[in-house]
Design a protein around this nucleic acid. Structure first.
Length: 422
DNA sequence: CACTATGATTAGTC
DNA sequence: GACTAATCATAGTG
């Protein structure tokens, strides 16, 4: 509208095109008595009024006359120039801004999550890495993994369809505006540069909408991810075999249940869990064993027997005639420790007072350990540097804080053993 | 549903 | 950084 006014002013100045004698003569007189600017405005208003009074044909004819006027291109170029120098130069300052850091961040994240990148990209890789880091059984993680992937694909699909919609809308609107401006440029001064600028403005507006889309997509991915992480955090018991392997190691190294890094790695490989899970397991096991040795007595005996039997088998196979010290070595089931409680009680009675469970068990296990070690049964674990060098002094790991809880658990003094050997 | 077992986490220590 | 001790949170069980 401002442009139009200015244009009309310009046209008035062209002479021959303006109708100064239109309207109420009185008002004209009044205007003449006023100052020059007011007079100009009055003229303009009158001209506008005159235009509205004109018939459509008349207006068209005048428009045509305007368009064909020999001075029109020159006038338009001058007006365009003036516009460039005033309004647009002010606006132009904030243009050519660098790419928005936030949108870059969002783009990076979407790319990293495999939403905006190429199909089957980082998302699944990230999920796989996350699953691997969390450990757990491969089947479980793969189920969760596929679930995660499906959800991510869904998000991806929505994102892309929305993005496409926005892009389409943006180009449609841009085309529309461009056509409109081109059309208008015939009647008001619009330079191609201005059209470009307008397009840029439209694109900015649409990119802010896109940013919102990206933002909400990111949020969705984060929510999905956190859910997935939560799912991975859900505790899953290790499988029986893994627990067995860990327990075997623990009880066969009861004097120093601190597997070295290598041992942990090997155990992790054997059990299909991560090294940190092995560490967790040993940490928990040590503390829980120490806290309540009695509770673990049976288990300890079981594994002591188990390892002994295994070792006996190995030794029997290795040197069939050279093992008189391992009776019944040929039939594991009939090993003399088949009644573990009895075996333990027997050892305890051998211990005299038999007040300290740990040493008695230790004795048992260590004896077995020694025996098996001599026959080569533990070569694999203890003979290949898999023992952690520190804390080699037997039982020191239990002695540190152990005495109150182990040798005198809550209850009557005499009931220590009934507690610990139940 | 209460209870126990157990894997994971966290704060503190060495 | 490894470890302990306490704790959390969930799985499994009767």
């Amino acid at each position: 509208m401002d442009d139009q006014t200015r244009m009309l002013t310009g046209l008035a100045g062209l002479g021959g095109l303006a109708q100064a004698d239109v309207g109420d003569p009185d008002s004209v007189r009044k205007q003449q008595s006023l100052g020059q600017p007011q007079q100009d405005i009055g003229d303009i208003l009158q001209q506008i009024m005159a235009i509205t009074d004109e018939s459509l044909d008349e207006a068209q004819a005048r428009k045509h006359a305007l368009n064909c006027h020999r001075m029109k291109p020159a006038l338009f170029s001058v007006l365009c120039e003036i516009k460039e120098k005033t309004v647009l130069s002010i606006r132009g300052v904030q243009e050519e801004d660098p790419p928005d850091p936030q949108i870059m961040r969002l783009d990076n994240m979407l790319l990293a999550e495999g939403v905006s990148g190429p199909e089957k990209g980082g998302g699944s890789a990230a999920a796989a890495a996350a699953a691997a880091a969390a450990g757990g059984s491969p089947t479980d993680s793969s189920i969760e993994h596929s679930d995660y992937r499906a959800k991510l694909a869904q998000i991806r699909q929505i994102y892309h369809s929305e993005l496409e919609k926005y892009e389409q809308a943006c180009s449609e609107f841009t085309n529309h505006v461009m056509n409109l401006l081109r059309e208008q440029s015939r009647t008001r001064p619009i330079s191609p540069k201005e059209i470009e600028r307008m397009v840029a403005i439209i694109h900015r507006k649409f990119s802010s909408i896109q940013m919102q889309l990206k933002q909400s997509t990111c949020e969705a991915v984060m929510i999905l991810r956190s859910r997935f992480l939560d799912a991975r955090r859900k505790r899953r018991n290790f499988n029986k075999q893994a627990t067995e392997v860990l327990n075997e190691y623990f009880y066969s190294h009861l004097s120093n249940p601190y597997p070295s890094e290598e041992a942990k790695e090997e155990l992790a490989k054997k059990c299909g869990i991560t090294v940190s899970q092995v560490s967790n397991w040993f940490g928990n096991k040590r503390i829980r064993y120490k806290k309540n040795i009695g509770k673990f007595q049976e288990e300890a005996n079981l594994y002591a027997v188990k390892t002994a039997v295994d070792a006996a088998n190995v030794s029997a196979q290795a040197s069939q005639a050279n093992s008189p010290a391992t009776p019944n070595s040929g039939s594991p089931g009939s090993y003399s420790f088949s009644h573990t409680g009895d075996a333990y009680l027997g050892l305890r009675s051998l211990n005299g007072e038999g007040l300290n469970i740990a040493p008695s068990l230790q004795l048992q296990v260590d004896t077995l350990h020694r025996a098996t070690h001599l026959t080569g049964g533990y070569e694999e674990l203890s003979g290949s540097g898999l023992y952690t060098p520190h804390r080699l002094d037997a039982n020191s790991w239990q002695d540190t804080t152990n005495p109150p809880s182990v040798t005198s658990p809550p209850g009557p003094p005499g009931s220590v053993h009934s507690d610990t050997s139940n």
